[in-house]
Design a protein around this nucleic acid. Structure first.
Ligand code: ZN
Ligand code: ZN
Ligand code: ZN
Ligand code: ZN
Lengths: 166, 166
DNA sequence: TTTGCGACGTTACACTATAACATCGCTTCC
DNA sequence: GGAAGCGATGTTATAGTGTAACGTCGCAAA
């Protein structure tokens, strides 16, 4: 077996039709593995932030995370949660959604990848898709202009199948 | 002849190799046309903000615009510049770069289009490319997941040909 | 003249993010 | 053991981005 638990593939927009506890649990297990493998520390705060990010498929803002942490009894200051998020970003365990100033759990931790996010403006949920085909087109286009691509932000906003009533 | 002055096509990364006064002038002329055509008012403030956005090919933040406006003698409050930007966005005269919280002049005003932005992390300049081919791929991919796409954020960060020293 | 309306002024505030420095616990090295 | 180093977190303050709410002003329609 390889070292990462593959997260179960499912449709995050299928609201009640999936066992999200399992999403959350698997994500935490995969994160433990990834950190052990990388020799970095998934400290209690970092783990708790990741758990909160995985509370749903809706990207969540840093200050919303702070409020959730406050429920635990602590009331940490902003740098605490931003440092945890920075760590999780570096380890590829969460993604930042630029168009929302929010963070969402990565569904493919441990794999080098770029992502396209489908973000429903009604329910707020986001789905992460592998951007490989699009990445190829964009890389080619960039090269045509002599541009060396490093980072890519691909975010689509619209209506998911649940919210468009189909 | 059609009603929009087509903006001159050139490479915004070719630093000193283009007459940027002309970029700026043409953009303002095209904006005048577009607003007259739409029956909306390009007021002095709106026009001045657009002119400032077009001061370079570098996306510029709202508060940087405020500082520039202050040089004119006025010192408007934030809502003034945000309202101008909102108008310019609605009219398709500027774009917002989500990954930078900044605004840049549209090089294809009056045409329905989606854009891919190439953003150089060294010189800060951005180039707007027509995203039509990529848009097609993404729309198809979204439809496969029952997702009705409405808005698209496509932003690539890297090094432009001038800054990569070639 | 009155009414309505769009644009702008003004004040205050909400939300997002980081700089700078202190503390604490652990490991390493002597 | 004690000193030094270092990563993680605590703490305080502040920077940067964006909006709500309400008032004013000028113009045009009725
Ligand atoms: Zn789930
Ligand atoms: Zn939805
Ligand atoms: Zn130019
Ligand atoms: Zn450059």
């Amino acid at each position: 077996m390889h070292s990462f638990q593959p997260l179960s593939e499912h449709d995050p927009f299928a609201c009640s039709a999936h066992d999200h506890r399992r999403c959350q649990h698997d994500a935490l297990a995969a994160a433990e593995d990834a950190c052990r493998r990388e020799g970095v520390r998934l400290t209690p705060i970092r783990k708790r932030v990741l758990e909160l990010v995985w509370a749903s498929h809706q990207p969540v803002g840093a200050y919303a995370l702070l409020e959730q942490l406050a429920v635990d009894g602590h009331r940490p200051a902003p740098p605490t949660v931003y440092r945890a998020l920075e760590f999780l970003l570096e380890q590829g365990l969460v993604h930042r959604i630029d168009s929302l100033n929010a963070f969402v759990g990565c569904t493919h931790p441990g794999e080098r990848h770029r992502s396209l996010f489908l973000i429903c403006r009604a329910c707020g949920r986001a789905q992460e898709l592998a951007a490989a085909p699009i990445e190829q087109v964009i890389t080619t286009e960039a090269q045509r202009h002599g541009f060396a691509l490093e980072k890519l932000t691909l975010e689509a906003v619209g209506l998911c199948h649940s919210c468009s009533g189909s």
